[in-house]
């Protein structure tokens, strides 16, 4: 079973992400990057499935050159190879543009199953996987907590408001996994060495047959009008516990008449 994992390399969790008020985009250049933990879960799930059923795991990602560090991490975990869409022309893409680009790149790979994170840990829109599925012409199953394969069908345990749903879906398909689905493995030295020799194919939008007006800012349907800071909450007080912290909180609760 060949799996394509679609995941993002994002500013490291130690970085406070800023939005540039001129470009109205997140500042990505010049900050340390890492494989999105949500994408690491998607890679892990793909590795577990192919370890059991055979096949390849190809990571497809779009991002700036700093993304390479995260791609190497996925390869060190065990992914077979990677595809990196690296092109200034795709900067400023909205969700729809992003999905068109990723779908075009995925179509060039062999796949029975595409696994995505339900949402990235930096922008959280949560609709790119479903858009990719539409452009690939495969059914989408999102918020997966568990995936099992039975021949040409997959059974998915899907998070629901009141518990979970058992979903049956024919392959090929796209599954978006929730980040708690597994504990991603740490790359071992052997994997890190092997990753150096693995192939990273680099594509531009033009390589994927996408015209300049379909991607990037020109192709975006969503336009950010203003970037602002919300009205701050009135600053409260912060104190350090010196042994009576619990009592002080009780006093505060009395002050606001909760007790």
């Amino acid at each position: 079973m060949n799996v394509v994992v679609c995941g993002k390399v994002i500013p490291a969790s130690s970085v406070t992400i800023e939005i540039d008020s001129n470009t109205k985009r997140m500042v990505r250049k010049g900050v340390p990057h890492e494989l999105d933990p949500a994408a690491a879960s998607a890679v892990e799930e793909a590795l577990r499935l192919t370890e059991k059923h055979g096949g390849t795991v190809i990571l497809v990602t779009m991002g700036i050159s700093d993304a390479t560090i995260g791609i190497r991490n996925a390869l060190a975990m065990g992914a077979t190879s990677a595809v990196h869409i690296l092109d200034e022309a795709v900067a400023g893409s909205d969700t729809l543009g992003t999905a068109k680009i990723l779908a075009a790149a995925i179509k060039k790979q062999p796949f029975d199953l595409v696994i995505c994170a339900t949402e990235s840990s930096d922008s959280y829109s949560g609709i790119v996987p479903g858009q990719i599925a539409y452009f690939l012409g495969v059914p989408p199953v999102t918020f997966a907590k568990e995936i099992s394969v039975a021949g040409s069908t997959i059974i998915i345990k899907r998070q629901s408001e009141s518990g979970y749903d058992l979903i049956e879906c024919a392959l090929p398909a796209l599954v978006a996994v929730s980040s708690g689905i597994n504990e991603p493995r740490y790359p071992q030295l052997k994997g890190i060495m092997a990753a150096k020799k693995k192939e990273i194919k680099v594509y531009t939008a033009a390589d994927l047959g996408l015209a300049p007006d379909q991607v990037g800012e020109n192709g975006a349907r969503e336009k950010v009008l203003t970037v602002g800071r919300p009205a701050k909450r009135q600053a409260g007080k912060v104190v350090t516990d010196e042994g009576d912290g619990g009592k002080q909180i009780a006093d505060f609760l009395a002050e606001i008449k909760v007790i």
Partner: peptide, 13 residues
Amino acid sequence: ANLSARLDCGAIS
């Protein structure tokens, strides 16, 4: 996700 792709209209989350 499906409708924004199908109608090629995008969406705001």
